[in-house]
């Protein structure tokens, strides 16, 4: 079964249009050239669409790594 980290890695890879292999669990904003400002907002839009979690301006600036996104999704799940 796919873990949450793997789901996040797959989502980021899809948003940035790169192979999953380029999205290790420790990757953060700016870690690869595709994860720039446009790439970041692409991730946020896909995150909202796929996981149905609210993404507002306060959150956008904090979800800057695979780990931060995983943690945010897990917290959102636990509140459901």
């Amino acid at each position: 079964m796919e873990t949450m980290v793997e789901k996040v890695q797959a989502l980021i890879a899809e948003a940035l249009q790169v192979p999953v292999a380029q999205v290790p669990p420790e990757l953060a904003f700016g870690g690869i050239k595709q994860w720039d400002s446009m790439g970041h907002m692409g991730i946020m839009l896909l995150l909202e669409e796929r996981f149905g979690v609210p993404i507002d301006a306060d959150v956008i600036a904090t979800l800057t790594s695979v780990a931060a996104i995983r943690e945010y999704l897990e917290n959102a799940r636990s509140k459901e």
Partner: peptide, 8 residues
Amino acid sequence: KQAAFQSA
């Protein structure tokens, strides 16, 4: 995307 990024 860019405006939202600048804002956030």
